[in-house]
Design a protein around this nucleic acid. Sequence first.
DNA 1: ATTAATCCTACCATCTTACTAGGTTTAGAA
DNA 2: TTCTAAACCTAGTAAGATGGTAGGATTAAT
Lengths: 150, 150
Amino acid sequence: MLISTKGRYGLRSMADLVLNAQENPVPLREIAERQGISESYLEQVFALLRKAGLVNAIRGSYGGYTLARPADQITVGEVLQALEGPLTLANCAKIGTPLECDKMDSCLTMPFWKELSAKMEEVMSSFTLQDLVAKETLPGLTPEVKEKEE
Amino acid sequence: MLISTKGRYGLRSMADLVLNAQENPVPLREIAERQGISESYLEQVFALLRKAGLVNAIRGSYGGYTLARPADQITVGEVLQALEGPLTLANCAKIGTPLECDKMDSCLTMPFWKELSAKMEEVMSSFTLQDLVAKETLPGLTPEVKEKEE
DNA sequence: ATTAATCCTACCATCTTACTAGGTTTAGAA
DNA sequence: TTCTAAACCTAGTAAGATGGTAGGATTAAT
């Protein structure tokens, strides 16, 4: 039940973009290198992010990508939905789509799927990219992990 | 990001089993017919449910399946985990598995995945099979939908 | 003109999914 | 004992998704 690499790579890359955004746009080559992801595969990921209006692209030499909005105004849910499509685990959790729900008994499971989707949506829309890079926002975790070398 | 048919069919079939459990075991043929699912595919689904200890099988003529425990003591999460494997959406949400987390920046996303998994687990473990068939248990939803009939 | 970047499309191998098919046991009933 | 209906088991398979690679075209700063 893992999410695909598109979503995982894309989310990591967006966090990377937040961290490394100076005044210059960030080229994919750098993100790919830092994150250990194939550059040409990342191109396809960022094509989706661009179409969703989450990043801006600057073409040509010294080009790259920038966030289309401030990091605290882009939710993780937006990123994942752009890359993975609808974020529901069953069709009958989607509003207005009684696709398989014409079976009488199958709809017994609908309240569960709806509740699950609602809770997932809650988490995804409350987490922003800023939350990912600002480690202090998460109370339960140890903030001092500076063991690593620079 | 849909869950597979194994999970969806299995959950519907378990609810079906709750509803149609008399003193006799319920044969797969009946469940398959009611739910509109291929019987031989359902066999594979129930093989997983049996190995997980969620149903008991009675072989031979007049055989079939029964719940291994009362319906209010089997959670939806148990059923889905038996059919889908681990219910996390990213590896780093699993405890004790720093698989892709040796990349420094990749772990920026870990708190999100952990939070999401925790919330999903919360819903899945709070919903029992009994809740699925007893529609009054859901407070947020309209308990009487008779108005739509008229 | 060169270079470095995005952009675009096609292709590919592997894996997963959702089955189907065909057989074997098992046990109640006739 | 035989018939029958059920669980059980394993292999195969077509279609789609996944996770890329390859090669070029376009764009813009130097």
